[in-house]
Amino acid sequence: MRVYDHPILGKLPDRKEITILVDGKKIKAYEDETIATAILASGIKTLRYTSEKHEPRGIFCAIGQCTDCVMEVNGQPNVRTCITPVEENMVIATQQGLGTWRKVSSKKK
């Protein structure tokens, strides 16, 4: 939920609205905000699932220190969404485990 009106900070300043794709779904975002912000504002709380137990993880530190919020961004896994800004038409995917790497093939044993 966005805080449009804040008793100390006042009204949300006008910013350019852009669209990002999260797991194929279009989501509204504002220019210059972080990916995690836009996703949380849209109501999504799970950003990835762990590799062994497939447990959900979300935002934990929000300052780029804990790496709990990593997602696949434009095909690149392990992107810290709490400090990475959105871009128009950015393709974002919930990261499953260690993610899918474009250049590293992942043939199973």
């Binding site: 709380k45 959900p56 935002i59 934990f60 530190c61 929000a62 300052i63």
Partner: peptide
Amino acid sequence: PNIMVAGA
């Protein structure tokens, strides 16, 4: 998810 440090 949604258990986070307070600063977050």
